[in-house]
Every structure is written in C-alpha cells, then in structure tokens.
Nucleic acid binder design. Structure first.
Length: 927
RNA sequence: GCGGAUGUGGCGUAAUUGGUAGCCGCGUUAGACUUAGGAUCUAAUGCCGAGAGGCGUGGGGGUUCGAGUCCCUCCAUCCGCACCA
C-alpha cells in the first residue's frame, strides 16, 4: 500500500477535531506545562513558510510534553486589531471586522492543514467584545491605581485619596512627574475638578499633554517602538513631534523591576540586552544650577558629576520651558529663529544630520555651584527634550558632542580627567574629546587627585549637603502612549464630565466599538469614533473617541487563555494558580522592545493586584530565526528581448530580472510558463546551455515583490503536512535565520515513505512480526530514544530529524518489521509527524490516539558495547583504528597498540615519548 | 560609534565535557531495474594527488599529547541601538 498522505492527514485532522484530542483541562493531577506561540496578526496575504516555523517547533514540544506525562496548555488565537484591515476599510469602505473575519478563517484553514495540537476551545480574538472587555477592565484598574515607591507596588487610588485627606502629598513617595506639594487642608479645599486633575498625576493610566510621535499619513500617534529612524514601522511614513492630550501608561514606574527581573528568565542574551538597552538605566546626579539675575533654577542630569569642574557652558533643548524667560533682549531674535528652525525639522532630518553642529546663545548665564563662575547658557538640538531634564552641563573636554559644539562656537575647553602620570597636552591642540572613563581628577579644586569614581561620589555628597542636587537614576524608557486616533481598536471605557475623564462602571463593560459612516477623521480632525451616532453614556456624557493601540490586546492574552471562556472574570484564581505562567514562549525577535516589554509590565501590574501569580509572564523564550527567500533571476540582454542562461551571461551586457519561483525547478526555468507570465515575454528568445535555461539565484527577504514567496499550502498539497513539518525543522537550528530552499524537501519526503514501507512486505501488504526484538533492533531503537529525547529537550529539532533518518536507514538495512520496535518508534516520531504515526499506530492495533501514549523509556542495557574501536593517532593525527574491550586496562592497551604492525610502521623504530589513553575516546602516541 | 550574534564541502548542516572534522539530507557522478523515469535500489562524492601521502573548520598567532571547540589579534557578514548627557 502506498503512503497516501492526503487521506491520512485529512482523516486524523478530522479525528482530533471531533474527539477534542488536545483539549486541556484546568484541573489535573498531572504537572502543568504551558506552551505558547506569539499569536499572529491575520493579514490578507495568509501564511508563508516562515510563519509556521515557530508553531511547528512549539507543537512538537507540546506533543512531546504530553507523552512525558504533562498536562499541556497549547492555545492559539489572533491579534486581530491592526492597521492593514483599517487601511483597507478606508480604501474600500468594507468594515474591518469583515476583512478580519475572512482573514482569520483563511489562517485557521492553513493552520489546521499543518496538524497543530491546539486546544481551539480557548481561542481568543482581540477584537471580540468578550475578550476586549478584559482589556478595558485592565485599563480601568490602571486608572484606579498609583505606584507607591515605598512598597514598590501599585496601590489603589482610594488609598491615595485617604492619604491626601490626612497629610496631603508631603509624605508620599510616588511615581509621578508632579512636584508641587500640598497639605491635607489644601487638598480638602480643592474643587472636584482640581482634585481629579491632581490625581491624574499619579494614576498608572493617565491623560496628559505629551510630546507624541504624530504620523500624519496614518492619522495617528505612535509609541516609541512603533517608530524607527523617524518613520513609522507600519507603512514607513514620516513621523513628527507634536504636543497632544493623550492617554499614557506609567510603565516607567516599573522600569527598575523590568530591568531586575530580566535576570530571572531564560531568554537569549541578545534579547535580554535589547531589553536592557531599551530600559536604558544610567546612574548619575541631578544638579540644580542657579541662574544669574533670575529666580529660575536650571536642573540638569549628568552621569559624570566628577567632571563638574570642566563645565564651560550649559545647553538646553530647543523645547525647554526656560528659554522664553531666560533669553535676553539682544539675543531674542537669534534664539527665536533657531528654535523655530529646530521645531520645523522632522525627526528624520534631525537624526540624519547628527554630525552637524547648530545652536544659539540665550545671553543668560548659570552660576557654577562650586567656583561661582558664570557659565553661558546655549540652546542646541543635540540635547533631547525626552531624556533627563532636557538640559545638560557641557564638559567639552570629555564628551565628543560637547567638544564639537565648543569648537564650533569657540567656547573654552578644560581638561579635568587624566590618566595616571600622563603628559598633559593643552586642549587647544586636541582634535577630539578625551572620552576617558577611568583616571584621576585634575583642575578640579576639592576633588583633585581623586579617582573618577571617588570624585563622582564626593560631588554627589557635596551637592546633597548644599541641597542643590542628589544622586539619581535615569531611564531611557518612556511612558507608553496609549491613545490612537484610529477606528479599528478597543474603545476606551471612558467618558468626560466637565472635561475630566471618568471610568465607566465595570457592569457596563464591554463598551462595544460603534458603527461609523467612514473610517476617517472628521472634518474637525477628530478621530473616526467622533463620527459615531449617540457616542455618549446613558446620561449623555460624551465617550472617549480615541482607541487603544495594537499592544493593548496582546499584553495580557496569555492570561486569558488560561480561562478563555470565563464571563465573570479576566481569569479565575483557580486557573491561574494551576497554569501559573508560560513555560515556553516561541516567536519572532521583532517583538523585543514592544510586546515583550508591555506584557511584562501588564503582568507585573496584575501581579501587584494579586491576580497574576508570577512576576514574569514568560519563563523561557525562544526567538525563531527568519526564513529567507531564495530568489531566481533571468538575464535579459540589454535592449533586446533575449534571455541568456546563467553560465553564459557574462558574455553579454545583461540585466538581472526576478522571476517567479513557481516557474523554476532546480534552477531550471519552465520557458513556457515564463512566456505566459507577462505579455512582454511572449516573444522572448532564449540562449540555453545543454538545452536548458538555468536561472541565477540569491538569498533575500521572502517577499511578494521579489517573487520568492513559498506558500505552505502548495507544499502540503504536494508532499503533505508531515513532510512540511519535518522539513521546516530539518532546515537548521530553530534560532538561526536560514534560506528556504525547496530542493531538500524531497529527502524528507523519501524518508517518510521509507518509514512507511517498514510496515509492509514485498507484496505491499501490512505485515509486522510479533516476535521478540533482536538485540540489534533494540539497539537502533534505544539509541534513537536517547538522541531524540535529548534533542527535543534542548530544542535541537534539526538533529532529531537526522536521528530519525539514521534509525530508519538502519531498521531498513536490518529488515526490521518488529511490532514492538515499530510501535515505540512511532511514538518517538509522532510529535514531528503526527498524521502518519497515528495511522500506523492504529494499524498496529491501538485504539487510543498516539498522542496519549507514553514516551518510550531509554534503557542503557540495549546500547552497551563490549568493545570500543579506538582511533590510534600519532602526535594528534589519526592513523588507524584498533578495537579493545571496554574494561581492558590502559597498560594492556598500550602494550598491544605498540606491538601492532601498523604502529610499528608509524613509529619508524623510535621509542614513543608518551602514550595517552583516554578510555572510550582516543589513543594518542607521542613520538 | 556602542552592544549582540555568526563564519565548517557545490548547498542546508552535524560534531552535548578540548579527544576519529564533515553525521543526516540536497546536489552531482556511475550503475541496476524499467517502454519510460522527476519512482525505487546500489556505489562514489572535502580539496590536491595515479598512489603513498599531503592539506583542510574566515586570516594570523598562542596554550595543549591533542583545538571547529580555549586565549590573543585581524577580517567579513547579519541583527539591535544610536546626539541618552
């Protein structure tokens, strides 16, 4: 009987679905194991072969864990809100919900065809009101909490109010930018609105005027991780800075915990490093400089307080609030000109020209806190509004940017740090700044001769004494802007009364997304939800018209899977106590700074509330590599419609043209298909080699425009899902990027057919032997058991596939059709190739699904060898092999080796200086 | 510029503690079976060499009886961050 993968795969996919084979129970005596895939955004293009790579790996691991006796939670769902569906809606008028539903259906079909062991009863879709009810619910909780730095956790706003009533805000230590102090009495005298405005400075979800990344083409603001090089990640449109009233999440309150707990999870070093960089902790000092003839103070942040005696000017960012009041009359025109120029530059321009120096002098002077010298205050765009205080003390001798600025505007440069016993060169002769991180302080008054480290702590001590500064820690991480001026996202559960925002009652959730006539902003420039009719509460208060960003729905989805159908709670305590957190999370590295930071924050907040039970959501995380495309090229002779084969192309002037890979097999072009591809090629002529047109090739990104996209459906049609699954794993290590090359898939297909044939006799009839397995058969099996188990446990799926091939080759050579052996081998293979093994398992007489079988136990006794075939080397070079019993002592081995005729030949009569014998490894003779 | 990763046959890769470099698969070559082969099977296949043998894990150097693996140095490629004070 032939291996008919089509029937087999259909049969078992139906069986699994009908019997809910992979349904996970929230109650079990078994240990739990939670395997999660990063859920996909269902795009219109469907899945290509790169998407399932991680899904296949996690599926193998899930199936393996079930056979190892775990209760496995392996769910799947859809990150269904997103820009493409909305852009499409804007163009066509089709409701994004319809597009999304169609795309989800297509995704589901494609996923089903690959044979994944998901518990589909737990599916979530972020755009489903039953799901986003809990996204809205969490937002309300964030609004109702503040961050107490003393207890280092989120606490209820109601408690904060009672503190305010008792002692104002003088005693609290909260995560907030609000610096004014008020007493209990002052609090009580505030109006309702004033109180609400005050509280807004403490809430973890807060509304404020913020500098945002505004993307005019997308008509929305974007979070920092959604902008790269001044362009939007989605679409690549320019982004500008703009001050807008926006919802933000106070993720910065969690910066230190997000940083610290990176140490506790098993993620790749590179990913941990990306997160650390994104959080960007730096230690230093905040120092307040007095300003000459002014009541204002200039606050700066520096990581190098030890260089304070090298300050020769101060620099403010062009957005700095003191510019207005500090600028002197005679400098005003210049300053205004500069500020305007800087303001109108796009983020992109600004980032492109980081080398050019620009700036303006305010005419004002700061007073050095130690020397009392006057220090000119300048403005330049090289100081960023978003970092520290937006103002710096410039130490040109030891900072390259300050140095460039000082040289350009002819400002003094004073060296204050030097290496021990170093010859001092006057700074006028320097060509660059001296960015030294170790050394001793010079020209520095009271800290002279101290080390950099001691100098810094001395200065911090002194400024604290003078009450003009303190040691501080600064983070690069910004609060997450949470409003989007788009239609296709979660509505905020917020209404406005007296222009202050209030939360809906929990009972009113979910607040469902309303219908609108168009998916565009209103004429007044309000977001699309402003078009909705009756977009108010029952009492007529207007509802929020912004929607939540893409990361809202994906931040807590892993928790919802634990109890996906619970209508009363986000998830029950019973469910979370059992499932805890994700044991294995697999997905792409592109989420390193977005999703993975936000969901860690989300989880920590829910942890503070006593809902989540683990500090970190994802215990182990693996980033699967990208699958690159293999493009094919044809070479057109310039100015002609003639194409020349790859090996002859250098004899002509040619242009390489991407050709669709579906016309090409083994780099040989199907000329007829190519001619039909485009009208212009119909009359094309070809210069061949050996009667064939051979295409050139290159490894590139897999993309529609490069005509190199491999679609899994076609491959499943041709080879079946089991072959696709195994081939994707066989390609190479999971975490490495690798090109997709269909050539090798035949080898895996051949392997499965050879495996199938083990169970059939020469007449093609199913026939297995029920006799006792031979020692040889047991050995082949048990070597495979050990290898496959070890490989799966260390996520080395490619080498496991190779172990299967070795075993099947050996079983074929041994003409093995032993039932016991084949039964165990089927279990081994079933996590990789679930369909074919279910079929064989059934043919072998089993009634239950193979996924419920126990993973075979490795038994040492079947693989022990009596002899070891030693490589005998001379001076490290292997010369011949010689077999010895394993328990033979080194002395006897040495004596026998040296007597061997082969050894005599290599010794050439010399006496060996040394003989090294490593048992079961090697014999090395040194001459 | 800073940080991270990777370099092994024609190609994808393997070598888990420093111990036989190239497992497995693709491709290629030759052969068998066949009306046919894009089915199946057999054999060969790192490079040089007729052979003996020599050379080989990005380059150079080192440690070691022994290095793909450890150390130093240089080069190349990829990814992330980038005026972060």
């Amino acid at each position: 009987m032939e291996y008919n993968f089509k029937d087999i795969e259909q049969k078992w996919q139906n069986f699994w679905q009908k019997n809910k084979t992979f349904k996970a129970d929230n109650q079990s005596d078994k240990p739990k194991f939670y395997v999660l895939d990063m859920f996909p955004y269902p795009s219109g293009a469907g899945l290509h072969v790169g998407h399932p790579l991680g899904y296949i790996a996690s599926d193998i691991y899930s199936r393996f864990k079930r056979q190892m006796g775990f209760n496995v939670l392996h769910p799947m769902g859809y990150d269904a809100y997103g820009l493409p569906a909305e852009q499409y809606a804007i163009q066509t008028g089709q409701h994004p919900a319809i597009t999304t539903e169609i795309n989800i259906k297509r995704y589901r079909e494609q996923l089903d065809k690959i044979g994944f062991s998901y518990d589909w009863d737990r599916e979530v879709q972020t755009c489903d009101p039953k799901y986003y009810k809990w996204t809205q619910w969490t937002f309300i909780q964030l609004f109702e909490h503040w961050y107490n730095k003393n207890s280092d956790k989120a606490e209820a706003i109601s408690e904060l109010i009672s503190i305010f009533e008792k002692s104002g805000n003088t005693e609290i230590n909260a995560a907030s930018n609000f610096e004014e102090k008020f007493t209990a009495q002052e609090w009580q005298q505030m109006s309702e609105k004033e109180q609400q405005e005050t509280l807004m400075n403490y809430r973890l979800a807060y509304l404020s005027d913020t500098m945002v990344n505004w993307c005019p083409q997308l008509g929305t603001v974007l979070a920092n991780d959604e902008v790269v090089n001044g362009l939007s990640v989605r679409g690549g449109y320019p982004v500008e800075r703009k001050l807008m009233k926006q919802w933000s999440l106070r993720i910065t309150a969690y910066a230190q915990r997000l940083l610290d707990d990176i140490e506790t999870v098993q993620w790749s070093d590179s990913l941990k490093e990306i997160q650390r960089n994104w959080i960007g902790r730096s230690e230093g000092a905040a120092v307040s400089f007095e300003i000459k003839d002014s009541e204002h103070k200039l606050d700066i942040f520096t990581t190098r307080p030890d260089t304070i005696f090298g300050v020769s000017f101060m620099v403010l960012c062009p957005e700095h609030e003191l510019i207005e009041s500090l600028t002197t009359a005679e400098n005003r025109a210049e300053v205004e000109k500069y500020v305007n120029w800087a303001k109108n530059r796009s983020e992109r321009e600004r980032q492109m020209e980081t080398k050019s120096v620009s700036g303006a002098f305010t005419g004002a002077y700061a007073i050095h806190p130690f020397t009392k010298e006057e220090i000119p205050i300048w403005i330049s765009e090289y100081v960023l509004a978003g970092y520290g205080t937006g103002a710096i003390m410039a130490v040109p001798a030891h900072d390259s940017r300050d140095f460039a600025f000082a040289r350009h505007f002819k400002l003094p440069i004073t060296q204050v740090i030097a290496a021990q016993n170093e010859e001092i060169i006057p700074t006028e002769k320097w060509e660059d700044s001296y960015d030294i991180k170790e050394g001793i302080c010079i020209n520095s008054d009271i800290i002279n001769n101290l080390s950099v480290e001691d100098g810094a702590s001395k200065i911090i001590e002194l400024v604290e004494e003078k009450a003009i500064g303190k040691g501080t820690i600064n983070y690069r991480l910004r609060d997450a802007i949470f409003s989007r001026q788009r239609y296709w996202g979660e509505p905020f559960p917020v209404y406005y009364k007296d222009e202050m925002p209030y939360m809906l009652n929990i009972e009113e959730l979910p607040l469902e997304l309303p219908e609108v006539d168009k998916y565009l902003p209103t004429e007044k420039g309000e977001p699309p939800l402003a078009r909705a009719k009756n977009w108010t509460t029952k009492d007529g208060y207007p509802l929020e018209v912004n929607t939540m960003p893409g990361f809202a729905g994906s931040s807590g989805y892993y928790l919802r899977y634990m109890d996906a159908n619970n209508e009363n709670e986000y998830f029950s305590q019973e469910a979370v106590q059992y499932w805890q957190n994700v044991d294995l999370y697999i997905g792409g590295a592109e989420h390193a700074t977005g999703h993975l930071i936000y969901s860690r924050f989300w989880n920590k907040f829910l942890y503070d509330l006593g809902l989540a039970v683990k500090k970190e959501p994802f215990e182990k995380l693996i980033n699967q590599g990208m699958i690159q495309g293999r493009s094919n090229f044809v070479y057109r002779i310039n100015g002609k419609n003639t194409f020349v084969t790859h090996s002859l192309k250098d004899q002509y002037e040619t242009t390489a043209i991407h050709v669709d890979i579906s016309f090409v097999e083994n780099d040989i072009l199907d000329i007829e298909k190519f001619k039909q591809w485009r009208p212009e090629f119909e009359t094309a002529e070809f210069i061949l080699e050996d009667g064939k047109y051979i295409c050139g090739w290159e490894i590139e990104k897999m993309s529609k425009s490069l005509h190199n996209v491999q679609n899994p459906d076609e491959l499943i049609e041709k080879y079946g899902a089991d072959t696709l699954r195994m081939y994707e794993m066989f390609l190479g290590p999971l975490e490495q990027s690798k090109p997709w090359d269909t050539k090798g898939i035949e080898g895996v297909f051949r392997f499965l057919r050879r495996y199938w044939r083990l169970h059939f006799n020469d007449e093609g009839k199913f026939e297995v032997s029920t006799e006792k397995p031979t020692a040889e058969e047991q050995k082949i099996l048990h070597i495979a058991i050990k290898k496959v188990k070890d490989d799966i446990e260390r996520f080395s799926f490619n080498t496991a596939v190779s172990a299967f091939m070795v075993a099947v080759n050996e079983l074929t050579d041994a003409k093995c059709n032993n039932k016991e052996i084949l039964e165990n081998f089927a279990i081994l293979l079933s996590s990789f190739a679930p369909h074919i093994t279910e079929e064989i398992w059934q043919m072998l007489g089993n009634k239950e699904s193979i996924s419920q079988a126990d993973f075979p136990k490795f038994e040492e006794k079947y693989v022990v060898e009596n002899d070891f075939n030693y490589p005998v080397s001379f001076n490290g070079k292997t010369r011949f092999m010689m077999s010895f019993p394993i328990d033979l002592d080194a002395k006897s081995i040495e004596a026998q080796v040296l007597e061997a005729p082969e050894a005599q030949r290599w010794l050439e009569g010399k006496t060996p200086k040394k003989v090294i014998i490593v048992p079961k490894r090697i014999i090395n003779i040194v001459t």
